[in-house]
Design a protein around this nucleic acid. Structure first.
Length: 470
RNA sequence: GUGGCUAUAGUUUAGCGGUUAGAACACUGGGUUGUGGUCCCAGAAAUGAGGGUUCGAUUCCCUCUAGCCACCCCA
């Protein structure tokens, strides 16, 4: 009785304090709150439902195709990434979280998974495993110290899929097919872009040709300032520049795909044949090169689909869409035949790709993909009174063991509150056990939609539930 | 890392040199007994932080922080 006014006055007292504090995040407190670091995100329970869905789907699909799940350390030697990903790449040179450990070791938070997986492959002699090729699945988070944006956090999650020890084009094609299929099954339609960047000698030759091409003053003049620099530093990256001038300058440029060796070309043709066979829609993008050092031959990316008619004339609405989707590739990968040997292992052909979980989920939200209701409980167990509560708890456990999806709130004693919760979680039935039911050895079954309820003998309850949930 | 835009309850937001800073959704309590949704009533809850300018700042200016957008790069 006297409780309410007491609370109020207490609240008022707190209120005065909180007026004096500058911290909006703290509820009635003077304590200064520590908030999350820049670019770091919390995943709240409602959203975690989607994460669960994506991750479960990945496990189901890739394991079915023979991929084995592994995990690797968050922290590795800095030199692992410098050597594999490439010291010159932005990922390694600008975006790594690095520090010197107490022993003086230079260590880094993983900005990428492939180097660690390759290291693990070599270190544990996986080329000797019974089942070859070795197909690995990895799901985890990575760290890149970038300026945050939507779909670009400093801690983010990926699904990585790698195949070691298979040189044939089936492997490349199967990966592309799996990535495409995975996204499609999640309700995200994507466009696959593919290209072949040949082998390293091809690229050396090609770069020379490209530089020759840009010797022409008129053509060179069209390049943006950035791209002129890029031409010196990392010429291949000029190819996928977004600058309009650069793109027009590239119109007559020699294409990488025309300058790769016959073996690489045949390999690529086979990849495309398989894709046709699998019925995977893809487009050839001769300018797709990717930014990590270790790729050779096949490279590919998964882009969210923008509008159905992509090849048609672009009006302004479309170009806005394009700009948005350009910013967020959902995944990408390719072949990296030289990496294992380069990292100190046996010569091992390999290929793989990564999918950005955060970006996939953003896309699912944008496309309004409905949340799965797989975990939704259909029974709520309500109780009234101490003795009935105990009975209800036992009963609830029995439901779990029998495989029903039930929910409860034994902490709330009012039936009103319990029914409210039953309604909110979308239960189809509420089972009510009170003092009277306890004595009679019965249970009330309430149909939440109609509001009708009937009493059943305890012995017949499960039978009745089965009937109603069917 | 460079450039731009933004910042009001948990969320979406209204407002503006002087207001009790308004609402919606969500939340809590109530509309007498052991019964949810709809409805009605009530309650709690906000100007990101720090400095200026001003009699007075949530409003104007600066700095910081964070988010978003573009670039860079990438998932």
């Amino acid at each position: 009785m006297g409780r309410k006014p007491k609370n109020q006055s207490a609240n008022n007292a707190y209120q005065k304090h909180s007026k004096n504090t500058q911290d909006k995040n703290v509820f009635h407190s003077k304590v200064k709150m520590i908030s999350r670091l820049r670019g770091m995100r919390d995943i709240l329970p409602e959203e975690y439902v989607r994460w669960d869905e994506v991750i479960n789907q990945a496990r189901e699909l890739f394991k079915y195709y023979g991929f084995l799940e592994t995990d690797i350390p968050v922290l590795e030697s800095q030199s692992l990434y410098e050597k594999s990903t490439g010291k010159q790449t932005d990922v390694v040179s600008k975006e790594m979280f690095t520090f010197i450990d107490k022993d003086g070791d230079k260590v880094a938070l993983r900005p990428e998974a492939t180097p660690g997986v390759v290291r693990s492959y070599i270190e544990h002699g996986m080329f000797n495993r019974t089942f070859q090729p070795v197909k690995l699945l990895w799901i985890g988070n990575l760290f890149r110290r970038e300026k945050p944006q939507l779909g670009r956090n400093r801690q983010f999650s990926q699904i990585n899929v790698e195949i070691f020890g298979e040189a044939s084009a089936v492997a490349d094609a199967q990966l592309i097919m799996l990535g495409y299929q995975f996204l499609k099954e999640l309700g995200v339609t994507t466009q696959v872009q593919v290209n072949s960047i040949g082998d390293s000698l091809d690229r050396e030759e090609y770069v020379k040709k490209l530089i020759m091409y840009f010797r022409d003053r008129k053509i060179r003049a069209k390049l943006s300032v950035d791209d002129k620099k890029r031409l010196m530093k990392n010429p291949l990256r000029v190819l996928d520049s977004k600058d309009e001038g650069t793109q027009s300058a590239l119109e007559g440029a020699p294409q990488l795909i025309d300058n790769i060796n016959d073996e690489a070309r045949n390999h690529f043709i086979k990849v495309l044949e398989y894709l046709d066979e699998f019925d995977i829609p893809y487009i050839l993008n001769p300018f797709l090169v990717r930014g990590l050092d270790y790729y050779n031959r096949t490279v590919f990316e998964f882009w969210p689909m923008r509008g159905a008619n992509s090849g048609q004339n672009a009006d302004s609405a479309e170009s806005v869409e394009e700009a948005i989707s350009r910013q967020s590739a959902l995944g990408g990968g390719g072949r990296y035949d030289g990496l294992v040997e380069f990292m100190g292992g046996r010569p091992t052909p390999a290929c793989g790709f990564a999918l950005g979980i955060d970006r996939i989920i953003n896309r699912m939200k944008e496309e309004n993909v409905p949340m799965s209701s797989a975990g939704q409980p259909d029974i709520f167990v309500a109780q009234l009174g101490e003795a009935a509560k105990r009975q209800a708890m036992t009963f609830f456990e029995e439901l779990r063991k029998k495989g029903y999806k039930a929910q409860q709130n034994f902490v709330k004693d009012s039936l009103k509150a319990q029914l409210e919760m039953a309604h909110k979680i979308g239960a189809k039935l509420t089972l009510i056990i009170g003092q009277q039911e306890l004595v009679d050895k019965t249970v009330i079954i309430r149909d939440m939609e109609s509001g009708m309820q009937e009493v059943y003998a305890f012995s017949r309850v499960f039978e009745e539930i089965d009937k109603r949930l069917k």
